[in-house]
């Protein structure tokens, strides 16, 4: 076909593309997108599960892992004594809470989610989870792993999916407190490349290596006392108004596969009886 006869076809094609782009931009195509997401979600989940398994098998070389294990064993030994004390206090605390019927008054319930995509490179550290606003999620909610280790906050949301910006992302900021105190004493800032640091800590605040940094609870949708990271190295001259500290994450942010989103109980959907906690 001669070029001259193809030009109108090209213009029609580009015109169509532009028209669809405009419809997309003003949000008319949102229901179509949601339907496609719903239809493709099982395949995306399957793809993520296979990717996670292969990724975990191939992750890291043996020497690096052995060095990490030795480092963590040293730290574990240091924590053991504290852990025993903490457990006894925790047990006492639990019994008191049960007695006082405080257990359900925390104002938060939780919902599990699977990570279906990741974007961890350079300054960016974010994951996509298979829960969205239909599951009662909102921007700013805390995302944790294990027994309450904060890994990030929800920053983008649609009906079926949500983006979690991890604490090592350069755009991430979390109000922090020392373990055992709800007093705001600094800010955990992401630096990219899997690193985060504690900043704006007043010189008067005691801070040393291996201290645990937790959430301060000053943010609307993030409860207090969620573990964030371990202090690695404290920096700052005595004459500086503030000191900073590099942090070691308590969870492998580059290997997340299952996470838990904490949502204020008031936001939970009534259609989700499994996650319904009685007030």
């Amino acid at each position: 076909m001669p070029i001259s006869r193809r030009v109108p076809l090209f213009i029609i094609l580009m015109g169509t593309v532009l028209a669809v782009a405009v419809l997309y931009g003003i949000g008319i195509l949102n229901p179509v997108q949601e339907t496609l997401r719903w239809a493709l979600s099982p395949l995306a989940n399957l793809s993520a599960v296979i990717g996670t398994r292969l990724g975990h098998d191939a992750a890291g070389n043996v020497a690096t892992l052995q060095a990490q294990v030795r480092d963590y064993e040293d730290r574990l030994a240091a924590f053991s004594v504290d852990y025993v004390k903490l457990r006894s206090l925790e047990e006492e605390n639990r019994q008191l809470r049960v007695m006082a019927k405080f257990l359900s008054s925390t104002g938060y319930d939780h919902i599990g989610a699977r990570v279906i995509a990741r974007h961890i490179q350079g300054k960016s550290a974010a994951v996509l989870i298979d829960r969205g606003s239909d599951d009662g999620l909102e921007k700013g909610m805390a995302v944790i792993v294990g027994d309450g280790v904060l890994v990030g906050k929800i920053t983008l949301l649609n009906r079926r999916l949500a983006t979690v910006t991890l604490i090592s992302d350069e755009r991430s900021r979390v109000a922090a407190a020392p373990l055992g105190s709800n007093k705001l004493f600094g800010m955990v800032e992401g630096l990219g490349n899997g690193i985060s640091r504690l900043t704006l800590v007043p010189q008067s605040e005691p801070l040393k290596r291996n201290d645990i940094v937790v959430t301060a609870g000053t943010e609307e949708k993030i409860p207090a006392n969620l573990a964030i990271a371990l202090v690695d190295e404290v920096k700052g001259q005595p004459t500086d108004p503030f000191k900073t500290a590099t942090l070691l994450p308590l969870a492998r942010l580059d290997q997340l596969s299952l996470v838990t989103v904490l949502r204020p109980a008031a936001l939970r959907p009534v259609t989700d009886p499994q996650n319904y906690a009685h007030p």
Binding site: L40, L43, S47, I50, G51, G55, A58, I116, A117
Partner: peptide, 19 residues
């Protein structure tokens, strides 16, 4: 196209190294 899209948007993000 859908399969390759899923591969690049989900599977590939879990894989490390040259792959």
């Amino acid at each position: 196209g859908l399969a390759f899209g899923l591969y690049e948007s989900t599977f590939l993000t879990f894989v490390s190294g040259w792959l």
